[in-house]
Design a protein around this nucleic acid. Structure first.
Length: 304
DNA sequence: AGCGGTCAAGTTGAT
DNA sequence: ATCAACTTGACCGCT
């Protein structure tokens, strides 16, 4: 069975996550900062519960959690520990409730740290800050029962092979709780599936195959090839990515995502797999619900 | 109440 | 050398 994952936010359902800016917090006295952050974190824990309820009620089998669910958690000036927040224990409890709900209803959750988290940077400060952020996301992942923290390979710095060697080495040094959840995803500018699959095998982390990125940044392999090799990197249910481009510039760089998914972008090779497919479409839950309606018929005709 | 500029962080590639 | 694009809002200060 294919299950679809929703990425971070809703277009129409009235479920919103809050954030904070460091600049604003720094204009307040420290005690007030913590009160503000506490209110936001509490709100977000409740919003996550609502998000999971929505998914459960609508047959959506996965949900990607925004990295800013605990805003600015590892920021050098306004970063904090849960114990610093007023009512921090209750906030953690609420996240644990989300974890029990997702386990009971088989809703898979994941994280996708943003572009500032780079494990293979030649700058050790960048790597250390990245590892700290991964530790934070892992902490939340344990509460909420998320089994995937998905990352891009990072930069090439003019020497892809050396960059990939650094990546293997740094992954090897990660705490087990982080590495057990870590996955790597092919991107649209630097690292293809062919680049990352050896890293995945050496470092013992799975590949999140993004077929749209692969079409923009090809590596000579077919969708069928990469699908098969990526599946072998997963000791549990695999997780792949699907999106449709707003503009069809065949072979050019990946542009912005479309509002919806063109069902014909769904690879026939995935049809019969047990697989989580995270849907990157700007219409969010509307796009998933539409795809769930149109895909079965489309597959029947296109992939016979 | 509504508007628009701004928001921690990195890297690449276009200008 | 500088700067937008990644993804995309939400927030905050101002009117």
């Amino acid at each position: 069975m294919i299950r679809f994952g929703l990425c971070c936010i809703f277009r129409e359902a009235p479920i919103r996550f809050r954030r904070a800016t460091a600049k604003h917090l720094l204009s307040k006295p420290p005690a007030e900062r913590l009160t503000t952050l506490s209110a936001i974190c509490r709100h977000n824990a409740e919003a996550l519960h609502q998000a999971l309820l929505f998914c459960q009620a609508n047959g959506i089998g996965g949900f990607r959690i925004n990295s800013q669910i605990l805003p600015l958690k590892t920021h050098p000036e306004v970063g904090y520990a849960m114990a610093d927040l007023p009512g921090g224990d209750e906030i953690v409890d609420q996240f644990r409730r989300c974890g029990r709900f997702s386990r009971r209803h088989h809703i898979r959750t994941s994280f996708h740290p943003d572009q500032f988290i780079v494990l293979n940077s030649p700058n050790p400060d960048v790597v250390h800050r990245s590892m700290a952020d991964l530790a934070y996301q892992t902490e939340v992942a344990r509460w909420v029962n998320a089994d995937v923290i998905n990352l891009h390979g990072g930069g090439a710095y003019g020497d892809k092979k050396a960059a990939l060697r650094r990546l293997v080495r740094v992954i090897g040094k990660l705490p087990t709780a982080v590495r057990n959840r870590l996955s790597l995803e092919n991107d649209d500018r630097v690292f293809t599936p062919a680049d990352l699959l050896p890293v995945c095998r050496q470092a013992g982390v799975p590949l999140v195959y993004d077929v749209h990125h692969h079409r923009c940044l090809p590596d000579g392999r077919t969708v069928a090839d990469v699908t098969g090799e990526a599946l072998e990197t997963w000791p549990r249910e695999p997780l792949f990515h699907l999106s449709s481009p707003l503009h069809r510039n065949g072979g050019g760089p990946c542009g912005p995502h479309h509002d919806f998914i063109d069902p014909s972008d769904f690879p026939c090779e995935w049809r019969t797999l047990d697989l989580t497919v995270e849907i990157e479409a700007k219409a969010k839950e509307i796009a998933i619900l539409r795809l769930m309606q149109t895909l079965p018929d489309d597959l029947k005709h296109r992939c016979a």
